[in-house]
């Protein structure tokens, strides 16, 4: 083994040691959560063994039933998909325009969105509720979806604009010369190129909508419209908390988000490399 190889092995070991130690601190809570989900309320704080003696797999089933997850789960999937698609379309349109196109007042509009992200609106639930009520959007899916789109909009625009700004423009120029329309450029060139950024936005907003609870409670009345987080509330009373069922519920609730993340992850890894650009060229048929 020459010196170069030793150095490389050492370096890679150090890297992995670093990554693994951070990874451990992240894995511990999820292990703890799943472990707690498999215990009973009596043993959950007493049993110190790493793997508890009796595993209550039934907790997941009970949590699913008691939390009425069936309906809530579907609702959450619906809200998350609708909001995320809405945000990706609306914010990428806006960000594309902010990044590539010219129109008067462009900067004012852009900074307005950025500023909005910064200014928290305490008590805005009062005017918002009154407004939604006047629009007959209280207790409707549509109203809730619109509100949630608004919540994620500013941040997504800022993020996407940053990425659009950085992306090479050659491909767009080529497409424009080929007679592609602006909308076509956005859909066929800019969006596929910005895949890593869009993946980030999808993850960010999915998590946001999936975990959102306050706005849903405020705007929705019917149980049949409530999202998943409503089901989790059943296990945390004002005073008493059923920890194993809560943990089981939280585990169930966390799983789909990790799935979305797993699915989006490859778009982040791929980035601009690995021929994304070439396949794009072959696929593109302008309208």
């Amino acid at each position: 083994m020459d010196q170069y190889q030793v150095k490389r092995i050492l370096k890679s070991t150090a890297t992995h040691a670093f990554l693994l130690s951070v990874a451990l601190t992240c894995l511990f809570p999820i292990f703890w959560m799943v472990r707690s989900a498999l215990m009973t309320n009596e043993t959950v704080f007493i049993d110190k063994s790493l793997i508890p003696a009796s595993l209550q797999f039934g907790n997941f089933y009970t949590a699913w039933l008691e939390g009425n997850f069936g309906v809530y789960f579907l609702n959450s999937v619906l809200y998350t998909t609708a909001v995320v698609i809405g945000i990706v379309l609306i914010s990428s349109l806006a960000a594309y325009s902010f990044s590539r196109l010219q129109f008067p007042g462009k900067n004012i509009f852009f900074y307005m969105f950025v500023a909005a992200m910064m200014i928290p609106l305490p008590g805005s639930f009062v005017p918002l509720y009154v407004l939604m009520n006047n629009l007959h959007l209280v207790n409707t899916r549509f109203g809730y979806i619109l509100c949630m789109i608004n919540v994620g909009l500013s941040l997504s625009i800022l993020l996407l604009k940053t990425f659009f700004d950085k992306m090479p423009q050659d491909l767009e120029n080529a497409a424009r010369i080929d007679g592609c329309s602006k909308l076509g450029l956005w859909w066929h060139v800019a969006l596929p190129l910005a895949r890593p950024a869009i993946a980030v936005i999808v993850i960010f907003n999915s998590l946001n909508v999936w975990n959102e609870y306050i706005l849903a409670t405020l705007l929705l009345n019917d149980k049949s419209l409530m999202p998943l987080q409503r089901g989790l509330m059943v296990f945390q009373g004002a005073h008493s908390v059923d920890y194993p069922l809560l943990m089981a519920g939280l585990t169930i609730a966390a799983a789909p988000i990790l799935l979305v993340y797993l699915f989006m992850q490859k778009h982040i890894i791929k980035g601009l490399s690995s021929g994304a650009v070439i396949t794009l060229d072959k696929r593109t048929k302008y309208f």
């Binding site: 009062v126 006047n134 209280v138 609870y213 306050i214 409670t217 509330m233 945390q236 009373g237």
Partner: peptide, 22 residues
């Protein structure tokens, strides 16, 4: 019986609904 928990969120809902007269 419609449940809105936790109680601080419930309170917000009642305040908002009062303002909207619903």
């Amino acid at each position: 019986f419609e449940l809105y928990a936790p109680s601080d969120v419930y309170s917000q809902k009642v305040v908002a609904a009062a303002q909207a007269r619903v």
